[in-house]
Design a protein around this nucleic acid. Structure first.
Length: 878
RNA sequence: GCGAGAGUGGCGGAACUGGUAGACGCACUGGAUUUAGGUUCCAGCGCCGCAAGGCGUGGGGGUUCGAGUCCCUUCUCUCGCACCA
């Protein structure tokens, strides 16, 4: 055995061995339980970043642990290859998106291999390959025929200078990122997927996803946003609006209807347009509302503004005239694009009414309060449920009763009814971009929108293309869009929009089961690997809503098209682990021109005071001081990213893996630290040295029974307790930092045993074997190497997780914590078999207890079995 | 603005079901080994205090024999908001 730990050599040799034996290759095996371990596939952006290293290490740890536990593990990998960055690179470097993408894939694949992940590369594919996206196009045509895909107009960000549609990300402070021109909202025809038809199933399904974090389920629930309420129609006529009709709104608070003092419509609402036709000021205001982007976050933070239309509608119950306003806080995309406003009981309506001097009428009172006209409005914008007041026949009714009574009266008049409303909107999938999956539709003047027939699929995206950043490249390529109508054969025009890249990522995990099937989208291997759902899905918390919701939706679509045969798959992901982000310190300098220069942490040396507090920082390359900024998410803009490759080159893959697993729990943010990496490396060196020292003293079999000293008995107790804890941390808790800490503690305890007798050496053999196996999922290269050294006979492919010796866990005596008034005052040793009264007796008779009791019996005695005794003396009162 | 999280020593974090706050690691201090630097090993290390003891989990309040953990309130930070992936 080598005396010195050489990670580069160890990792090269072990990886060659894995490659030779096909260790990560997964085949369907009915003899073992399967474990499908899935990571969110990467976008091939260039090279791996720390977030990738973290994500795929978490998955690899779980995959390897389950393999050690006897599962047949499948861990695939692929590439989410379509997307905007490839087009941006094309514009910047004049390199075709396909070429750029494939080059990035090569780089990142070799980096993933260098990290030693047990990935079955035979299942690899990139979503930009026609063999993949043809099935997406195929399913699209089926969904189009079913009416799940439909066409209507949608609002996009329009850059009037570049004459192009921009993503929200490309709109900065309301202006185009390249042109700098103010962005406008523009309506264009788009294809949508009817996800709202599955809203109820998507909502109810969340209750069954017990393997998901509650946080994610809650976010999805709120996103779908099912609310119960009432549709209310406010009639208008020729006298007030110039034509007859009703203005429909949806409200979750029909009980406040008697307090409605105006109605507000979105700028895009037909009534707003009608009023604007004769009102220049209103036209100007609607124009103002159209400026800026479509991102909801921006729209929700703008100042609430509005203008009266001059129109009036009738209150559906009392016939009162209510003014119609146009307001920028009403969203056309939600509900009816109009709201009834009850300023007394809604915060936003209240602010709006105050600003424009509209009446505020209190109609709900707190149950505990006594409402009188004299004190009204006694609670402005009181938004809680309460009792109706000032509401005529509804006075005195509670929320439910009032809703029922008002809904019934509305229904009688034909002016409203109870219904539910979802916040969820249909999914617009059309993108006016090049680097995406072509939408398989042909527009024919006589036949309309015709789906491309199966035999003409895939509609292949041409790869020799010029990307300029202005307009859609495909729309400039007659050789792409000129075609014959599949129905009538006349000249027709092919759709030039591509699909949202979320479509590709909504089903890739099913294709991993059968990537080689050239004749079908999926086959019965899905039933094998996805039985009970994918066993583990690991990825960033930023995908908590959209990607995960779309994937759930697509799985249901594929199920309903009948692609799974008899196999029923309702939910794709049984267990979900959302990892936190990777953050790092930032350093900067203010430049003379007022700009900030961000300096990479790898170029900075921190100076600390005698107590280790950072006091100053200097740039290594010029020795000059730099300012210390905050801890922020690793990003290009803050130049605080740390390249995993330099880490691997210097310390090896195992140190990189150990650091990212040890620095924090997987679902929390992970802070980069050079010193922490050093610590991880030191631990591995120490592990190597300890094993080397042990092995160099000669071979010995692990302890398997026989007479033993008290010290070794205690140590074996800790050993087997640690095995239990680590297995629980990997399997149930998925908290790897504490698993590592427990093994470190075990090794610290092992080092304290100054006994080289035969029994002690056998126990040490037992402990070191177990420690190596326990660490194997995290640092597989060094552990497999060490295991071969420490137990040369065992060379077969898969290592097993160590078993617990329950006999080692038995104890004669246990230590309890002794508290007085809940404060720690001492310890109490009792026989493990002691019952409650024996413990109480022992506790009261201790010197500590007597000191606090002053000879009197305790007022209260609390015994928590196996943990503590709390004595509450007489004198103590609350 | 709305929805969801997080806040614990000098630092990363641990405390799983309301039951010993600070495991483990880093940094720092002292000592040993070493020609020296580095490495390695040993010891110390929340704050105040000579000690006894007291205080301590962003701030304020509450429930409890007992609160980092539960409730109310407040501040700060992070993620998502439908065309970034």
């Amino acid at each position: 055995m080598q005396e010195k730990y050489d990670p580069q050599e160890v990792e090269r040799a072990i990886q060659a061995r894995w490659e030779d034996t096909g260790a990560a290759h997964a085949v369907e095996d009915m003899g073992k339980p399967k474990y499908y371990c899935l990571s969110m596939f990467p976008y091939p952006s260039g090279k791996l970043h720390m977030g990738h290293v973290r994500n795929y290490t978490i998955s690899d740890v779980l995959a390897r642990f389950h393999a050690m536990r006897g599962f047949n593990v499948m861990q695939p990998m692929g590439w989410d290859a379509f997307g905007m960055p490839a087009e941006n690179a094309a514009i910047q470097n004049r390199v075709p998106p396909a070429k750029w993408t494939y080059a990035n894939i090569e780089t990142m694949k070799s980096q993933l291999k260098r990290l030693g992940f047990a990935i079955d590369w035979d299942r690899e594919f990139a979503t930009c390959e026609p063999d993949y996206y043809r099935w997406e196009q195929w399913l699209f045509t089926r969904l189009f025929e079913k009416g799940i895909v439909y066409k209507r107009s949608g609002v996009v960000n329009w850059d009037p200078v570049d004459q192009t549609v921009l993503a929200n990300e490309q709109v900065i402070d309301g202006c185009g990122w390249r042109s700098g021109a103010p962005i406008e909202k523009r309506e264009i025809p788009m294809y949508y997927m009817r996800i709202t038809a599955y809203a109820d199933e998507l909502l109810d399904g969340l209750d069954k996803l017990e393997g998901w974090p509650e946080q994610v389920r809650l976010m999805q629930r709120n996103w779908i946003g099912k609310s119960f309420g009432c549709e209310v129609a406010f009639p208008y006529d020729t006298a007030t609006v110039g034509l007859e009709g009703v203005l429909k709104v949806f409200t979750t608070r029909p009980d406040t209807l008697m307090g409605a003092t105006y109605v507000a419509v979105a700028a895009e609402h037909p009534l707003a347009a009608r009023a604007a036709a004769v009102d220049p000021a209103l036209r100007e205001f609607i124009g103002e509302c159209k400026r800026g982007g479509v991102a909801e976050a921006d729209m929700a933070t703008v100042e609430k503004k509005g203008l009266p239309t001059g129109f009036f509608v009738r209150h559906p119950l009392n016939g009162e005239k209510l003014p119609v306003w146009v307001a920028n806080y009403v969203l056309m995309a939600y509900g009816e694009g109009a709201v009834m406003a009850v300023p007394a009981h809604d915060e936003r309506d209240f602010a709006f009414a105050e600003k424009y001097g509209i009446e505020i009428r209190t109609v709900i009172a707190s149950r505990t309060g006594v409402y009188t006209e004299a004190v009204a409005p006694w609670i402005p914008a009181y938004a809680e449920h309460g009792v109706c007041v000032n509401s005529g026949k509804y006075d005195g009714l509670g929320f439910e009763d009032a809703c029922d009574a008002i809904a019934a009266d509305l229904a009688t008049k034909g002016l409203g009814e109870r219904r539910t409303q979802f916040r969820l909107r249909d999914w617009g999938i059309s993108r006016q971009r090049y680097w995406g999956c072509p939408i398989p539709i042909v527009h024919c003047e006589t036949c309309g929108d015709v789906p491309v027939p199966d035999e003409q699929l895939p509609v292949v995206l041409p790869e020799n293309v010029e990307v300029t950043g202005s307009g859609s490249p495909l729309a400039r390529m007659p050789e792409f869009y000129e075609c014959a109508c599949p129905k009538c054969g006349k000249p027709a025009r092919r759709e030039t929009d591509t699909m949202d890249t979320f479509v590709e990522s909504s089903w890739y995990f099913l294709r991993y089961c059968c990537p080689d099937n050239g004749g079908a989208m999926v086959d019965d291997r899905v039933a094998h690997w996805c039985e009970g759902g994918i066993d583990q899905y690991v990825g960033g918390i930023e995908h908590a809503i959209l990607h995960l919701l779309y994937s759930r939706f697509w799985t249901k679509l594929m199920r309903d098209i009948g692609l799974f045969g008899d196999f029923r798959l309702d939910e794709p992901f049984a267990h979900l682990l959302t990892q936190g982000m990777v953050v790092a310190p930032t350093f900067y300098r203010k430049m003379p021109d007022g700009k900030t220069e961000w300096i990479n942490p790898s170029d900075v040396n921190l100076e600390c005071d005698a107590r280790g507090r950072p006091v100053a920082a200097k740039r290594l390359s010029d020795g000059q001081p730099v300012c210390i900024g905050g801890i922020e998410k690793m990003s290009k803009s803050r130049n605080n990213g740390v390249d995993p490759q330099t880490l691997i080159d210097k310390y090896g893959a195992d140190t990189a893996r150990l650091f990212v697993m040890f620095a924090s729990a997987p679902d929390q943010s992970l802070e980069w630290s050079d010193a922490g990496v050093e610590g991880a490396y030191r631990f591995l060196k120490r592990l190597w040295r300890v094993v080397h020292e042990h092995v160099s003293k000669g071979r010995i079999l692990a302890y398997s029974g026989g007479a033993i000293t008290q010290e070794l008995k205690e140590f074996r107790h800790q050993l087997h307790q640690t095995i239990g804890k680590v297995a629980d941390d990997y399997g149930r808790r998925k908290q790897f930092n504490t698993a590592i800490a427990a093994v470190m503690e075990l090794l610290n305890a092992c080092a304290r045993i100054n006994d080289d007798g035969k029994t002690a050496r056998a126990v040490r053999q037992e402990a070191l074997e177990a420690a190596i196996l326990m660490l194997y999922p995290i640092v597989p290269h060094i552990c497999e190497t060490l295991f071969i050294e420490i137990r040369p006979g065992k060379t077969s492919g898969c290592l097993s997780f160590p078993d617990i010796d329950t006999a080692a866990l038995a104890r004669d005596e246990i230590e309890l914590v002794l508290q007085v008034n809940g404060k720690l005052r001492g310890y109490l040793r009792v026989p493990a078999s002691a019952d409650k009264s024996a413990i109480e007796e022992a506790a009261v008779s201790t010197e500590v207890a007597q000191r606090y009791l002053n000879g009197k019996p305790p007022r209260k005695l609390i015994v928590v079995p196996g943990r503590l005794v709390n004595i509450v003396p007489q004198a103590f009162s609350t």
